[in-house]
Nucleic acid binder design. Structure first.
Lengths: 169, 169
DNA sequence: GGCGACTCTCTTGATATCAAGAGATATGCT
DNA sequence: AGCATATCTCTTGATATCAAGAGAGTCGCC
């Protein structure tokens, strides 16, 4: 079994024998795997009439539970985009009738974004398709290995999530 | 130990109890970790006067070994960008004197792109800084766990690399 | 109660990317 | 040899994103 990263590491070891490139064995694989997943997700979502960014926003609303309604501000913080980007996204989602905007009765500065019935249908279908695809990627991996992998990845991710969530350092 | 993905999975389990969202435990962590790594890489490279895309191109040349020279076509295939993007990148790298363009003596259609001395200095320094950062991320992880993680990630990545490298399916 | 600082959404201008195609040279088949 | 096809780099037009800031409304402190 061999992948692109084995070649990458080998090339660096030849060109930079003075450096310890061992961390690439783990972290380059994470990056490359994520790139493949992005491409595949785009394909899966396209089959369900959604762009990846559309899924991101709709899924955030869907996960929040009934009444599937949030402020743009909360949405942009959850999806890590800027306010200009979120305005643009909501405009296009509303034009496609996947969400609806209404004034926030409690704060006249604000609006609320609510998932439409069609939006919920689409995001529910897209999630099912995504999981089906992801299951096929994980394919033969045994349950014990999946859990081991989740555990190890969590140990890397958890400190990073901490520092991103509490940016006060 | 808890991360954002634990919350994500919990929310989906509440809202979609009919679906098995277990694959997210592995693959959402891969995606989120990659996003953190991208941000951090940007920071590290900026400290060395390079954009991430500049590092990608310069590193590709550096890894190819002396004389650190490749065609734009080979570069764009290695970095997975389109030809228009690569032309733009080479323009800017040449303007910054990190690479030089010259006509290919063997093929009058083509040009060759060669790493300049300054380009090599920059990419060498940036790689060292990147590895230092990556080592700090891996921090306390034991060698045996790193190897286990590499092995499991390779088993996921290898089939995907195959299908991307040989697109004839 | 009134004023200043803060928060929220949306707008503007600039940038990097991609998809599609143009123009020039090379290659192979008859 | 000659012509069609393939290959290579670069150009064009459209799009999504971000950074910075504008305008409207809210909240707290004096």
């Amino acid at each position: 079994m061999r992948d692109e990263v084995d070649g990458l590491v080998e090339a660096w070891r030849t060109e930079r024998p003075d450096l310890d490139v061992e961390p690439l064995q783990v972290l380059s694989r994470v990056s490359r795997l994520a790139r493949h997943l992005d491409r595949a997700r785009r394909t899966v979502f396209t089959e369900h009439g959604l762009e990846p960014w559309e899924f991101d926003v709709l899924a955030e609303l869907r996960r929040s539970g009934p009444p599937y309604e949030m402020s743009p501000g909360r949405l942009l913080r959850a999806t890590l985009v800027t306010s200009g980007t979120m305005t643009n996204r909501i405009d296009r989602l509303a034009a496609a009738d996947l969400v609806r905007r209404r004034p926030d009765p409690a704060d006249k500065r604000g609006v609320l974004v609510r998932l439409s019935d069609e939006g919920q249908k689409r995001v529910d279908a897209a999630l099912a398709a995504l999981l089906e695809y992801e299951e096929s990627i994980l394919g033969g991996m045994r349950r014990a290995d999946r859990e081991r992998l989740s555990f190890l990845l969590r140990s890397l991710l958890s400190p990073l999530d901490e520092s991103a969530t509490h940016p006060g350092s």
